[in-house]
Amino acid sequence: MAVPSGAPHRAPRRAAAGKDQRAERTLGALAACVLLLIAAMVVTVFINAWPSFSHNGLSWFGSGGDVDTQLRSMEEASPLPGHSPYYFRAWPLIWGTLLTTLLAVLIALVVSTLAAIFLTEFAPRPVRRALEPVIRLLAGVPSVVYGLIGILALAPFINDHLISNARKASVAYVVQLNGADLMTATLILSVMITPIMVALIASALSVVPITWREGSIALGVNRWRTVVRVSLRTARPAIVAATVLATARALGEAIMLAMVAGSHGFPANPLDGITFLFEPVRPLAATIVQASGALTISTVAHTLYAMAAVLLVSAAMLSFAGWAAKQPLKRYGIRA
């Protein structure tokens, strides 16, 4: 092989290594920037939340008075008598958040698991092919459309057909029942978080090793029990992950709940019996949206940042809880 004469050989490897290093450093720097941005966001939220917490102490989480009155007093810059301008008792909002999130996740968990089992085990092929686009469709509907349907269709329906006038009269002295309430909010929230749970759980069920499923069938255990005892058990990490994801989504849902759950920050009382389902609630995220018009006022801003801080911490705790729930399962060889 003749060596070409004339043009000098550069040292390609060194130049190339330099180019590679530059690329790596640039991308690494970008990654670090994004990381810093996120960290800055978290820190800023907490810094801006501090005044509200410091003025209220731990009773920020307690109850005492009406949230709407407190917010309005901040907006109008006229503090309530005997209280600081930052006076705020968030319990009704926290309670509303807990109620809607937990109930919706519970309903969605049951529904999604059953639907995922249906999708992977029992559905005949044409039904399966029809169900998948349906689930994708439900996942894609924007939350404001869900809110619109809720406030203009579901809430009036519940108002007219499920809440009797007698019930309305019985609580009229405290709160108005008009269909925008816990039940509507929970139902729509469940529909919103079901699709992603179904996708995750079905994905996990479909990769359960066929040797286990076949072994169970060969032992004379019918398909339902095989799914419940073997497949679901194997898919438990995915179910945990799906629940964490769904809870995070439900926690952060602001717009749909702002439209549907009732504009009254009222702590729904389970001791009211069935009426409990029809009482309005207002979760934290929805309150942030609804009060955001007054963000220029510093007291309001600090209070809202405090709520955001609570949401951030909850999301972080959720992630941790999800991680912790998966650890014991590793003992039996169920890998996540």
């Binding site: 090793p209 040797t211 286990w212 076949e214 072994g215 169970s216 060969a218 032992l219 004379g220 073997v230 058990r233 194997t234 039996y332 060889g333 169920i334």
Partner: peptide, 14 residues
């Protein structure tokens, strides 16, 4: 249950 099968690959459940 009356006619039981053991497979080529051992497949104990998790």
């Amino acid at each position: 249950r009356r006619v039981s099968m053991v497979f080529q690959q051992p497949n104990p459940f998790p």
